[in-house]
Write a protein that binds this DNA or RNA. Structure first.
Lengths: 332, 332
DNA sequence: CTGAAAGCGCTTACAG
DNA sequence: CTGAAAGCGCTTACAG
């Protein structure tokens, strides 16, 4: 079925498409008589008129579409982000295109290209390792973009993130004061700057403490198995030990290991994890974790993006939101 | 920066836009000389030409966009679905618009309208209670749609789902054979047909068994608290009892309760939950659960939708995929 | 208060 | 082998 257009309304109403367009868009400036307005509105209603945003987009060079590229929408952390961004984007009248790139720079590039062809007005990106080139290309097209969660070391664009180094440093401080004999930092074997920041913040504080320290760096593609083997090898229950899992996935995989091994938290080992997830509620001990203010971050991201979309100025400011430790019962 | 168009290429190359369009689209039929082709391709490359799909969409009446409406993208179950659908849609050249409606028919309606204005080629819907009207309207516009997970009792459109009644019936059979003294079905207090099917399938089998049976029906908006109170009141550990949690969220909330109360599974109570989630791996006992073949379902959904998009025929067939019990250690 | 016309960036049937 | 032209459904500056 061909859908009704403004032209159909115009024909039936006996007015021009211009007049119909003015009425439908409720422009203040244009003085259309009330009877004309009513008639047109009535007809639009009766023939079930649905405006064609594609046509409007073409004419206006604005699609009211925003592209969101993240590692994997099925990952709890990212799907939470997506939801917050969706809500916020809707408030601004944007609809969300979502793409998952699986830490793969080629997929990332393809998604930026696809979204760019789709004429999204802007993109919110969680860039992967080696995605600089793709982002640079976007930048050359003067595409409004903002990074989220992650950022690019060598490209200065607006980015929303947490205070990765600082929060890790303060987590370390917190653990140091508890007098552990050994602390194990569990992170990813990666070049992602925000994760390196987490590491370095932790390293910085621990280096001035006289505590045994290990780093377990996990390949990003085989988390469960590597965590299992890593902890199997490195966790020494005869010492008073604390584990710091520096991401959501790592936390879940690590807790799953402790669970399988029936290792008691915090009696045998203390744990701090990252991000909120209802999964923690199934673990026998209430887990202490680092909480990111995702909703505030999403609000800011959309706000910053929308501002760019409207005036095409890119100030390269990165904004760090403070994460905080929600201390429950997994550290003693 | 204004983006380069086909017209710019034409001007620079000294050919018409028609020729440029033919070359860019690599049509077989049109015989363009190789030198022309090369020249045009080269220029396109050098001025960083990006095709404008909005313009193409308008001309072709095809946006290559698919809308996905579900209850909440941050819900583990739905974000998994979204990911599978994303992957499959991409294979067909579609990009995904995602919207969450929070079980709210008004939000659902708004999303259908928004997507419809956005000219998506089709929609994959997890309809909510009282969304019949919105779907009917889509149908009147002859919009290609397919329901997923859920279906509409009174509207006959293609739908992808599991064998809700049958799987529940066979879960019940499984439990009956274990000689429990009491079985508690934990479900939602809802009118969603697929959830009623789950209930009725269970009821059907239990009605022929001589076992004490309770149904705990939970309001969809306050799960954690209602599960807590409901189990507190109804779970009697002096009897050999089995709990059947008929959704992912209910399973997690229920296990969380058992965890808080330090009730041992399966020693004190047996449990079967619904859907896979890594959350289960944090629970002290490996959880037996009902697995839905989400990837196959996603494949089928996109396939069915794509078929509709291409020939506008709607056969109202619902397709049930077999769910199956993955039996672990939470039932004794 | 209303309309004719141009144009957004494409595709494609037709002509030559 | 290539181009002129129409048209997809809108918006808007301009004229009357």
């Amino acid at each position: 079925m061909k859908r009704a257009s403004i032209k159909d309304i115009a024909r039936i109403a006996g007015f021009s498409v211009a007049t119909v367009s003015y009425v439908l868009n409720k422009k203040e400036g244009s003085r259309i008589s009330d009877t004309t307005k009513e008639k047109i509105l009535e007809i639009a209603e009766s023939i079930n008129y649905i405006p064609n945003k594609i046509a409007k987009s073409l004419k206006m060079s604005k699609s009211k579409l925003i592209g969101l590229i993240l590692a994997d929408i099925s990952n709890d952390f990212y799907s939470n982000i997506a939801r917050h961004i969706e809500d916020e984007a809707m408030k601004f009248g944007y609809t969300l295109l979502i793409g998952s790139c699986d830490e793969n720079p080629e997929k990332f590039r393809k998604l930026t290209e696809l979204f760019s062809e789709q004429q999204v007005d802007g993109m919110i990106l969680a860039p992967v390792v080696d995605s600089d080139e793709a982002v640079l290309k976007l930048l050359k097209e003067e595409y409004p973009i903002v990074t989220f969660d992650r950022y690019l070391k060598n490209i200065n664009i607006p980015g929303i993130m947490i205070n990765n180094a600082e929060i890790s440093e303060s987590i370390c401080e917190f653990l140091v004061e508890k007098n552990f004999e050994e602390i194990i930092y569990v992170g990813y074997d990666t070049k992602l700057p925000h994760l390196l920041d987490r590491q370095e913040g932790f390293d910085k504080r621990i280096s001035t403490a006289d505590i045994q320290y290990k780093k377990l760096l996990i390949g990003i593609h085989n988390i469960t198995e590597e965590i299992y083997n890593g902890l199997e090898e490195n966790l020494n229950l005869s010492k008073k030990t604390a584990l710091y899992f520096s991401s959501n996935k790592l936390g879940i995989a690590g807790l799953s290991y402790l669970n399988q091994k029936n290792i008691k938290v915090p009696q045998e080992v203390s744990v701090i994890a990252f991000d909120e997830t209802e999964a923690y509620s199934l673990f026998p001990t209430e887990i202490s974790y680092v909480q990111q203010p995702l909703m505030d971050m999403a609000k800011e991201a959309v706000k910053v993006l929308d501002a760019q979309i409207h005036n095409y100025t890119l100030d390269g400011r990165r904004i760090s939101f403070p994460a905080k430790l929600i201390n429950k019962k997994s550290v003693q």
